[in-house]
Design a protein around this nucleic acid. Structure first.
Lengths: 208, 208
DNA sequence: ACCTGAACACCGTTCAAGT
DNA sequence: ACCTGAACACCGTTCAAGT
């Protein structure tokens, strides 16, 4: 007679994320997760392969949270639509990082081969293409931009920049937008690819 | 009668780095370090406060390795001296990352309050000032540039970008130089601050 | 099918003891 | 001053057993 299922993978990942949020990554043990779910540690192994798999699952959760409510790229959204979307995506990453500061560092230390991670990449690819970035540079630039944005979000949320006041970090965000916008510039083709009517260069707004 | 000292802090840190290089961060335990030094785990505690202190010591070692042989900023080195120096520093960071791929991820997850870390920051500050970056933006831009350069070096050395061929990564390095150079541009004052004779904008070379 | 209990080989860290 | 031995409370993971 089959037992009723008492836990599942998402419950495990959610509990693990909660533990990391409260006690930091060092507190994140299989036993701690099991205790929080009122279950034996060994019960977890039916739903996650091992601890590495559990950590990858957390990364997946965070990636999905970054993409949550992200509007699909809007080709008719005006000349600078891609820039607005990019800045909003960076803002969501920062929000997720401040909700889960400890777990967020996992994003930069583990390979991003999961579905949600691929979605984030595809999202950025689309925005860069909208900005007129040449096809041979889209993936390359995505790696650079993603690293910068996630790295800054992680640094701000963790202890790495901890000695700074909140106002300093807000100013950092504005500077980051200018930096990324200007950094992309040399990779854009001179004619606008998205809005055929556009004549002036896009991207100036956030850089000043 | 005092015993002869058999180990010291640097020996411990070096052994720890070796272990991380061979077996990854998970293999890095106090017991493994002790065994490699032919000593009891408890002997380590006279030289490092605890495991967190040991990890911070490794970060210190890596930072020092990045700064090793870095020439002092040369104010008379021509208009683009700062850019050459910045690119070479990034190159050294990348070399250290490929020598110590596993340990390198620690650089981005731990606060950088040690001496060597401060030296790296001061080095970058000097280069940015040479580039004509306004004083109110120097520290901010250092955080952004350092995050980008270290993050890319870590990503290339770890599993995060592992699915790419070496040639792709070489091309990434060139794109990174263009990106950073262009990203800094809006923060530079229009008149050159370092070479009074200079008239044309510096930094164009690497961005094209 | 899903969870438990007992067991194994490890962890980081303490304390008192040896030289 | 520096290292050891024994001990404690934890780890991740296995295997066979229960329902």
């Amino acid at each position: 007679m089959p037992r009723p299922k008492t836990i599942d993978r998402t419950a495990i990942l959610q509990a693990a994320l909660d533990i990391a949020d409260t006690g930091g990554v060092p507190a994140l043990s299989m036993q701690a997760v099991a205790t929080r779910l009122a279950v034996t540690p060994m019960a977890l192994y039916r739903h996650v392969a091992n601890k590495a798999d559990l950590l990858d699952g957390i990364v997946e959760l965070l990636m999905a949270e970054i993409m949550a409510d992200a509007p699909a790229p809007d080709p008719d959204g005006g000349r600078d639509a891609w820039l607005d979307a990019l800045i909003r995506t960076a803002g969501r990453a920062r929000a997720v990082a401040s909700r889960h500061p400890a777990a967020f560092t996992l994003l930069l230390s583990r390979p991003a081969a999961t579905t949600a991670a691929r979605e984030v990449r595809a999202h950025i690819h689309g925005l860069l293409r909208q900005a007129g970035v040449g096809g041979e540079h889209v993936e390359r630039l995505e790696r650079i931009v993603t690293t910068t944005v996630l790295g800054m979000a992680a640094g701000q949320a963790s202890d790495r920049f901890a000695h700074h006041a909140p106002g300093v970090l807000d100013e950092d965000v504005r500077a980051l937008a200018r930096f990324v916008t200007a950094g992309i510039e040399p990779f854009r083709s001179s004619e606008e690819r998205v809005s055929p009517a556009g004549v002036s260069r896009a991207g100036r707004r956030a850089s000043r």
